[in-house]
Computed example of a mutant assay.
Amino acid sequence: MNSAVSSITPDLPNDLPVAQVSHSVLHPAFIAREVARRYPTKGEITCFLLYRGMNDVYLVQDDTTKYALRVWRKTYRDVDDVAYELDFLAYLQAQGYPASVAVPQHDGRLYFKVASPEGERALAMYDWAPGVKFGERLSNETAFRIGAAMAQMHLHGFAWAGKDHAFSTKTAKDYNICMPALIAFVNDRPDDLRDYPLIAAALDKRLDELAASGEVPLGVCHRDFHPSNVHVDEDGAITFLDFDAAGEDFLMQDVQNFVWGNLFYGFDPAIGEAFEAGYDSVRPFTQAEKDNRELFLMAKALRLVAGMAESSTAVGRGTLRFRNLDWLGDYIKTRARACGLL
């Protein structure tokens, strides 16, 4: 047995307890072998782990091309939920939309599954997004074009879903799945223990009211769009990526996710304003959407802290390195009070 294989499948003493695993990391040699047999690549395959995070991403390269391969982390979502993202991306590709899309395998499938210590996990290989993160090439003009492109994506989402499809607020309220983890996360913070469940319950009601009004539209959304999830090349061409949270949501939530991410990274607020202006130039905001900007900014922050709590057993608390619980709590509660949710 060669060293690469033995490092993946070592012999284990049978008298030791079997550990519960929250997040295993697949060996690059295993990934390379699976890619070589599943995909129409050329020549030798090399692979290394780029980063381990909410999902794990590998750089895969053959003799002519490089790709990004994602291994989804096992979460509360069903492993086959990834089909939603990949099918939507395939539709966007057919429309000529600038997004990083999954590469089909020999049999045409867009993802495959493997068994891991924590259960089944999904894998998909994507074409490489050219350029660098928008945060490394900031400009108001590019932000405007990114906003316009997001609006176009939302319009494509309506066509993909079909004119008779009824959108739901279910995934817009996924923060409720993470609330038990958030309560455990802030167990030494009495104010947070009291306030977060109250805010979540009030937000549930408000979101349902907005959906029922028909003035704040729902649609197919990226659901985690921020300045690091769009690349810009030297010629200014943009590519959207990381659709792994894609699903039904309020379109304005998608917009404010980017605006909030701009704040989170400490960029000039003018970037977020240009992004909104670009979006509005393609799909004009309703007055109700404008009136609820602060609500969706607050909701983004609540989603973030709840999601970090849920994922902390797998990826640790390092995602708080930019903003701590005091900052997040103040942001959420100040806006929740202003919106009448607390």
Rank of each mutant, 00 (worst) to 15 (best):
L198Q: 15
I146C: 03
R73A: 13
V82D: 07
L49Q: 06
R323I: 05
K133D: 13
A83D: 13
H226K: 00
M153E: 02
S168C: 04
S100H: 08
F322L: 14
F48E: 15
Q256T: 05
A166T: 08
Y175E: 03
E294S: 12
N187Y: 07
N262E: 03
C47S: 09
Y331H: 11
T169M: 02
G247S: 08
E215K: 12
G272I: 00
G135F: 00
D268I: 00
G96P: 07
L297S: 15
Y279R: 01
F112H: 07
P284S: 13
D56I: 01
K42L: 15
D254Y: 00
D107A: 05
Q105M: 15
V103Q: 14
Y331Q: 10
I146K: 00
S228I: 11
A314C: 06
K74V: 11
R283L: 11
W72L: 14
V232W: 00
D81L: 09
W160D: 11
D81C: 02
D195G: 02
R194C: 09
H231E: 14
K300Q: 13
F275M: 09
I8P: 02
C221I: 05
F296I: 03
L155P: 06
P180K: 08
T9C: 13
K300E: 13
M153F: 06
A201H: 10
A200F: 03
T142R: 03
L207G: 04
S24C: 09
H222N: 08
K163V: 12
L92A: 08
C178E: 15
D11Q: 15
L320S: 11
R137P: 07
T46N: 08
D63E: 14
H27P: 00
K333G: 02
A237H: 15
I8H: 08
P284Q: 09
Y126E: 12
S213D: 06
F158R: 12
D233V: 00
